Amino acid sequence: MKFYRLIFLLIVIIAGWNNASAQVTDEVKFPPKGKNDTIKVAGTNVGGEMIPWIPLHEVAIYGVRIFKSPAERAAYNRLRYNVMKVMPYALFAKRRYEQLERDIATTTNKREQKKLIKACDAEIKQMFNKEIKELTITQGKILTKLVDRELGRTTFDIVKQTKGGLTAFVYQSVARVVGHNLKSTYDPQEDKDIEAIIASSGFYR
């Protein structure tokens, strides 16, 4: 009885191996080429037939916003203009301070770290003297929010980390006089209009 079971098991194994070999050696059918088919694309074997495919970029679809009044439309357009004006500065600050953190991480020498911070401050100040000082109070407020959005830290925290608590306090005091708050944070729900503008702006494409 055991002998017949062994024979049956061997038959099953051999049949399974033959099927597997047949599947491996089966010829894969490729789609016919046209005279202009010169671009190589990826392909997936589906039941012995090679199906070509190409990855596509994500497509974001946005609804058309309906405004309750011309005044509401005008307010939104002003907000969009201001966001588009200051967003490049927030992205620049993000890239520059991320680079600063990477540079500081490469050395434990305090003097060298101070040099790196000073160089970063000089670059930021150069941009400030050329362009940012021309921003309106409203644009400045939006910028401080966007810095928090991009870096996950308020402008006050960044100044405190790089320049010390006393300098951060002085900067905050001056900012408050002209209507700014370096401790402003970004809330995607509270600032949903800004978030919608950024999402449809193309800054991250």
Rank of each mutant, 00 (worst) to 15 (best):
K94D: 05
F203D: 07
R95G: 05
R78Y: 06
Y171A: 09
Q172M: 03
I117R: 15
T144A: 07
G202M: 01
Y204E: 13
A122G: 00
Q161H: 07
D191N: 12
S69E: 04
I132C: 03
D26A: 07
Q161S: 13
E58K: 12
V147M: 13
F203M: 02
I13W: 10
A22T: 13
K85C: 14
K145Y: 10
E72T: 08
A75R: 11
I158G: 07
K85F: 13
D191K: 03
T38R: 11
K192S: 15
K163R: 14
V24A: 06
L9M: 12
K40L: 07
Q139T: 04
I124P: 00
L135V: 03
T38I: 10
I7V: 12
Y171K: 05
C120V: 09
V174F: 11
Q113R: 14
G179R: 05
V177R: 14
N129V: 08
K85A: 15
G48F: 07
R96V: 04
L10S: 15
F92N: 06
R5D: 05
A105M: 12
R95M: 10
W17G: 10
A71I: 11
E58T: 14
S173F: 07
V159N: 08
I197E: 03
E150L: 08
T106G: 01
K33H: 04
I51K: 10
G165Y: 13
L182Y: 08
I61A: 05
S200G: 01
K2A: 04
T162C: 10
V83T: 12
K40I: 09
E58N: 05
C120L: 12
S201A: 15
R96L: 11
A15L: 12
K163H: 10
H57P: 01
F92V: 09
E190H: 01
I197P: 03
G179V: 03
I14M: 10
